[in-house]
Structure formats: C-alpha cells, structure tokens
Design a binder for these strands. Structure first.
Lengths: 144, 144
DNA sequence: CAGGATCCAGTAGGATACTG
DNA sequence: CAGTATCCTACTGGATCCTG
C-alpha cells in the first residue's frame, strides 16, 4: 500500500504535491478532509464489525446508514463529500428504484486502495489521542 | 505502522473518531490538513533525497527551508501549522541563538510514527493522480 | 429516503507591513 | 532569519426549507 520506496526506485510519479501548481497538490487538499477520511473508513469497515475479525469485503452502505455512522455530519457535507468521491472514482453510487428510493455507496478498487491509508490516519488519531492530549497540556502549561 | 488489525485485537482504543464529541474526531480534523501532511512529509523526507535511497534518519529542517520546499505556502500557514504540530508533540522546535537566529524543526518519535501515514497519503495522491483525472473527465462528460 | 436549494455566520487563509 | 500583527475576502459548512 505505502509503496514509497518502490515509487522512487521504479516509475517515478510525474506529480509532486510539494509544487503548488501540481494537480496532486489540489488532490491532496481534497483528500485531507475529515469527512473524506471518515466516509472512506466507514465504507471499508462494514465487514470488520465486532465479532467478525476478517476484513473480508466491504458491504455497500446506504446514505442514511452513513449519516448515522458519521455522527454529527450535516447532510450537506455528507452529500458533498460523496459526490466528490464519486467524481474522483473512489466510490460508486447505486440507485435502486424502490419506493422510497434506495441509494447505496460502495468503494471502487481505487477507493479500496486508499482505504488503508485513511484507516491508518483515523486509527493513529484514536491510538495516540491520549499522548497528544498530554503533550498539549505540557505545552500550554509551559506557556504560563 | 498501520496496525489496524492489531488495534482491534489488543487494547481497543477508548477513542472513536466516528463520534462527534470524541476528541479524536477533532484531532482527525487537525491532521486532515494539506499543510500538515506536507510538513510531516518534508521533515521525514530529508534523507531520502535523490541519490540516497535509505530512509536513514531525518535531518532537522530550517524554517526557510520548509517554506521553500512547500511551494506556495504562506508564512502564516506555515507558522500556524508548525505551532500546532509542536503543541501536539509531533515536532520539536529548536532555536539556535546565532545572528540572525536559526530555528530548526524535527520530527519527534510521535511525529515519526505518523510520518508513514502522511507519506502514504501524499504518495497515493501523486501515484493515482492520472487515474483520478480520467475519472473526473468521465464523470463530467456524463453530466453533459 | 435521499437529497437539492438557499441563506448566512464563522473562519480559514492570503496579502501586507513591521520586529527582535 | 523567523517570525508576529493586522486587515480583509472568500469560502466552508451548519441550519432550514423544500421535493421526487
């Protein structure tokens, strides 16, 4: 997944996010979004529920299911994020003409390739939260 | 680095970024920042320069060096980002009282543990940029 | 149910000028 | 060199109302 070494050795990407004009800089900005991380995490996480330990394969999720999982997300942000991810080809949107309509979202292969990174980010935040909190206290105390 | 499986198996974190009130949600929001990703990537990337292939250990970077590497960053954003990262204990700030003053930034152990994830994100953006661009074209064309 | 449309407050973030 | 301080705009993003 994190093929950092390989990338430099083999076919070097012609994109460089360190450069302001590079499209990858803009893409990085797009991916660096709380809701993007959470949506991607949620969509890939469905089968990793308590009880089941194997990642298996992701189950599509409905709009309402996502909005319930991402506690506090506004429908505007959720829709906006989903649209952007769909446009970039990270997720698919499937409309089933039931009454009322059913819409499901699912990771594409491309989205799955990013899922690991996003889970890594989310997990890092959860695992190191305590340490970060302690660091903040120390920093703020020093500035007394 | 991405100990996703391990985290669930072992000591489950008491933080859950899916919950709005959880501090880790706010931390995720902070980390989900273009400049955070680029600063962290830059600080850990110093020894992985062309020519040298081994990651070895990161060299501290000066403020001006960072601002040159992160093309297009404003001093406000750079300073703001560096302060936040320092407060959270991800980087250290060292002032050497030369004339004029020299300030260097370096990853802490905590910062290094996040570096891999951030590099993963940046590299993903660069590697899959072409594919994403193609997906966008297809999406926009379909909405004609 | 799954959004679209609109309004509006808050803030992110650039530009500029100044300092130890 | 490495910032701090201030101003100001543009966009983010929540709240609200409406629809197929």
């Amino acid at each position: 997944m994190a093929a950092t070494t390989q990338d430099r050795a083999g076919a070097k990407a012609e994109f460089d996010a360190f450069l302001a004009a590079c499209p990858s800089r803009q893409l990085l900005g797009r991916l660096s979004d709380k809701w993007v991380a959470l949506v991607l995490a949620a969509l890939g996480d469905t089968l990793r529920q308590p009880g089941c330990d194997e990642p298996a394969d992701a189950r599509p999720m409905r709009y309402s299911e996502l909005s319930r999982r991402l506690v506090g997300v506004s429908q505007k942000m959720l829709t906006q994020t989903l649209r952007a991810l769909e446009r970039d080809g990270l997720i698919t949107r499937t409309v089933t003409p039931t009454v009322p309509v059913t819409v499901t979202y699912e990771l594409t292969d491309l989205g799955r390739s990013l899922h690991g990174v996003m889970i890594g980010l989310k997990d890092w935040a959860e695992v190191h939260m305590g340490e970060v909190l302690a660091n903040r206290d120390r920093y703020d105390a020093a500035a007394s």
